[in-house]
């Protein structure tokens, strides 16, 4: 018999890093910035989190360090794209390349070391409930944080003034500037937030998913998270649904391999990437859906006159 709760658990575990990275990028893109450095920020978070936890023995200090590393990388991106108005696509790529290299360099001393795992929550009685106990009450803290972030971002964008300002800046930075909003400050803040959640996503990989350091352990998840943001048409609820769907696809491949399905393992491993492409095609066939939410100034630099 298939243990459905175990499968759900692994799906959530596989989805959470995607969700964490993507929810930050969603805010970044809503403010009109395209940060392709997700993969680099994530992998830096992973190595920084692992290293800190390894040295101090505290997974939580690792999580903090990972967030710090993600923010630091994102601020490099912000400095180039916002202050120096460089091309956002190329700058994002450079952050990714830099992150992959730097993480390898920092992590070279940590390869093969035992890691520290961030423990799951355990609430007496509730966590032991059949079927839903672990699923609802026994996850690791980052899962809850990711869900809180999705709800929080959704509320922030829709209902708060801050959200209104972020949307305004993303839609038309010239108008926002004319009304006296500091486009660049708003974007710096959003980019830093994106760096923080990417760092968290990295920490999830190296402190929860597989508590050890492996080179390039993000394996393209940063890019898939970027695709998820497009797929979500910039709506947090849809983003969460998409992330769990992708986590499902990822786990499907692993399970099939584990159960000895006579398909080459490489084919199963390629499923998430194929699914990403298919998802992008599906969403693009419905253009009107994405038009209203698409930040109109996405990817364009802004230089105010003085």
């Amino acid at each position: 018999m298939i243990d459905y709760e175990a499968i759900m658990l692994t799906i959530i575990t596989a989805s959470t890093p995607l969700l964490l990275a993507a929810i930050g990028e969603l805010v970044v893109e809503r403010s009109g910035v395209l940060n392709l450095g997700l993969e680099g920020m994530m992998v830096m978070g992973a190595v920084a989190g692992f290293a800190m936890a390894q040295v101090t023995g505290s997974a939580w200090l690792g999580v903090l360090m990972a967030m710090f590393a993600g923010v630091a990388m994102s601020l490099l991106f912000a400095f180039l794209t916002q202050t120096l108005v460089t091309n956002q696509v190329a700058t994002g790529l450079s952050i990714t390349l830099l992150g992959l290299g730097l993480s390898g360099l920092i992590g070279s001393g940590f390869v093969g070391m035992p890691g520290v795992k961030l423990e799951s929550v355990s609430i007496p009685v509730l966590s032991d409930l059949p079927y839903v106990g672990t699923l609802v009450f026994g996850q690791d803290p980052l899962v809850y944080i990711s869900i809180i972030l999705v709800i929080g971002v959704s509320y922030m964008l829709k209902r708060t003034r801050m959200g209104l300002i972020i949307r305004a800046v993303g839609q038309n930075h010239n108008s926002a500037h004319a009304l006296g909003y500091s486009v660049i400050k708003v974007r710096y803040a959003c980019i830093a937030f994106g760096g923080m959640t990417s760092g968290l996503a990295g920490a999830y990989l190296s402190l929860v998913y597989t508590p050890q350091w492996i080179e390039n352990m993000t394996a393209g998840r940063g890019w898939i998270a970027l695709a998820l943001v497009v797929f979500s048409t910039w709506l947090p609820g849809r983003l969460a649904a998409g992330a769990y769907l992708f986590g499902g696809v990822w786990i499907l491949g692993l399970y099939a391999q584990g159960m000895g399905v006579p398909i080459p393992s490489q084919l199963l491993s390629s499923l998430p990437y194929v699914a990403t492409i298919i998802a992008l095609i599906l969403i693009s066939t419905n253009r009107r859906l994405s038009v209203i939410n698409t930040p109109a100034s996405l990817g364009q630099g802004f230089v105010p006159d003085r």
């Binding site: 209104l164 949307r167 305004a168 839609q171 010239n174 109109a296």
Partner: peptide
């Protein structure tokens, strides 16, 4: 009132006004 309006197309009238 600007010659080139400082408006946000995908926002409502109220949201546009509130921003200012």
């Amino acid at each position: 009132v600007f010659q080139h309006f400082s408006l946000f197309e995908a926002l409502t009238v109220t949201e546009n006004i509130s921003l200012a």
